[in-house]
Design a protein around this nucleic acid. Structure first.
Lengths: 128, 128
DNA sequence: AGCGTTTTTGACAATCATTCTCGATAAGGG
DNA sequence: CCCTTATCGAGAATGATTGTCAAAAACGCT
């Protein structure tokens, strides 16, 4: 059975109060700075669990996994600022359908997809 | 200036005769088995170069980078079999446009995107 | 509240892909 | 053929992530 611990709650909360994607390392550092004593391994475990349960989205960038809290249960994609990490959740209904069609046309079953858009957000566009 | 070496050519060719995505490690192993003496670091360097030059596509999966030869110069996406790695290049014009629009609507500039569809190919669907 | 069972934790070691280092090697131009 | 300079290769170094295992803490039960 799954147990409820203050560590997991701390990770969940830290992730929730974060703008954009964070790495496990960064989140651990932040927790430590806030006086928490969670272990690094625990943060990794908690994030992996959150991702499995659908309470967090994850993506790989430059060899590390980044996580972000997300509205649970809803399927969506992201628009991510390459510079500051700010993230906007976007619906992509037309793309969902397109993905299904393309998969079917090629005889593929159980299609799943990765759709993310990277760019520079308003502020960062100015700053360049 | 960029020099032409048999090592780079070997990597390029090995990649070209590969169905689906391969990891640098796997490609190196294959080259070694074929009697080649290329070093692992060289394979990594060659693949990174090919990706930059647009002669190879890359994607990250489970913490490792996978590469695949691709039709140079053309922008496209992939439909990848989760089980055997077979890959189909797909055009996604409607998605390209959609990505641009969504980015613009949110004030993002220089949009780039990652669009990949995973599933089970015809053969693997039967095998399950 | 007290107990026992079982999951979770955390410090550290271990792993694994990738990158760096640096002397040796070889491409290409002249 | 020679010289300059990019590239190679072997192994060390790095850095994120995962495994190990004894100690700590949840939860169900009484």
């Amino acid at each position: 059975m799954k147990r409820h611990t203050w560590q997991r709650e701390a990770v969940r909360e830290a992730l929730g109060t974060t703008e954009g994607f964070v790495s496990a390392q960064a989140l651990h550092a932040r927790l430590r700075d806030s006086g928490s004593s969670v272990g690094l391994a625990t943060v990794y475990r908690a994030l992996a669990d959150l991702a499995v349960e659908g309470d967090a989205d994850s993506l790989q960038q430059e060899g590390e996994s980044l996580y972000r809290a997300c509205t649970p249960g809803s399927h969506h994609h992201h628009l991510i600022c390459r510079r500051c990490g700010t993230t906007v959740e976007i619906a992509a209904d037309p793309v969902e359908q397109w993905a299904h069609e393309v998969a079917a046309q090629n005889g593929f079953t159980r299609p799943d997809h990765v759709v993310d858009i990277f760019g520079y957000c308003v502020d960062c566009s100015k700053a360049l």
